[in-house]
């Protein structure tokens, strides 16, 4: 940092992709194993999945499902509110990390990415999407879903959310030796991979939209060091979420802090920064890319 541009050094390896994948595996194992523990061993320490998950007496409630139910019933029940607090605080500070680091649907996508990478034999690739939509469709999905739920008078996303359905299908398979019919939704969502890498997450997921909205002014952002950046565009090609980090979009509302661009950068010009709490924040703000730059 701060040095004049030199010949590119040998890249210091960042293991962020590996860490993320391990984290996703851990998060998936949490929902994969707990039905077995509950059913066969009567170990009730972990219950539920990403609609509401409990580790002992630490309860989490998914914010969108909670807000949906709150809007419809208009009743406040404290365990419910307290369960929603921690995910909301995480989203406020770290942004949409649930999407990229925990969500089982994204975990399946990530496996597909890895398989695709193996097959394509190119170190850095970007598959061209069949078509792209304007990004604000995401907000339409969120508002539309909430409005629909309020018109019908029953929450919709609680039983149709793909991340929740993954958990429920595992639980149904273990407890009742059958699968629920709505699991087809998961397959449909996974098939949208053929359109673009995160088609559902990018445009249609109301939960992702809510987390993005909460994390609009998040503390953890990925900044670009303009002194070391060579504008190679590898980050644009590596981003599975279809955003362009080189145009400063990594600091915007749609970034999920997955860190793919950090891992791929050959000059180590991108890194995670916790703004506002670090003493050098003023300095880092200067290094931010003006968002209009093409």
């Amino acid at each position: 940092m701060g040095k004049p541009k030199k010949e590119p050094k040998i890249k210091r390896k960042t293991y962020i992709d590996t860490w993320r994948f391990l984290f996703q595996i851990g998060a998936f194992i949490a929902i994969l194993v707990n039905p077995f523990l509950n059913y066969y061993f009567h170990v009730k320490v972990i219950q539920g999945w990403y609609q509401s998950i409990a580790f002992g007496h630490l309860w989490f409630v998914s914010p969108l499902e909670g807000i949906e139910a709150l809007l419809i019933t208009k009743i406040i029940y404290m365990p419910w509110i307290i369960g929603m607090t921690l995910p909301i605080i995480v989203a406020l500070l770290l942004g949409r990390v649930f999407c990229s680091w925990i969500c089982p649907i994204n975990f399946f996508y990530e496996i597909m990415d890895r398989v695709h990478k193996k097959i394509s034999k190119r170190s850095y690739y970007k598959r061209k999407p069949l078509f792209t939509l304007p990004r604000w469709i995401l907000w339409v999905a969120l508002v539309g879903e909430l409005m629909l739920a309020m018109i019908v008078g029953k929450p919709i996303f609680v039983f149709l959310s793909p991340p929740g359905l993954v958990g429920r299908e595992i639980m149904m398979a273990v407890f009742f030796h059958t699968l629920a019919l709505e699991g087809i939704i998961v397959l449909i969502v996974l098939t949208t991979y053929l359109i673009s890498q995160r088609f559902f997450c990018q445009y249609l997921c109301p939960l992702g939209a809510l987390l993005a909205f909460i994390g609009a002014k998040r503390r953890l952002i990925i900044v670009q060091d303009m002194n070391t950046c060579h504008q190679c565009g590898f980050c644009d090609r590596a981003c599975p979420w279809g955003i362009y980090p080189s145009r400063g979009e990594a600091e915007g509302i749609y970034c999920t802090n997955c860190g793919s661009c950090v891992a791929v950068c050959p000059f180590n010009a991108r890194k995670f920064v916790f703004v506002g709490f670090t003493p050098s924040s003023e300095k880092l703000k200067l290094e931010k890319v003006p968002s209009g730059r093409q």
Partner: peptide, 19 residues
Amino acid sequence: LFAGKCVRCGRCAEVCPYH
């Protein structure tokens, strides 16, 4: 109220010792 309040987390089904 039931369908409006329930978030379908399935924890009641998971803790039920008699299934």
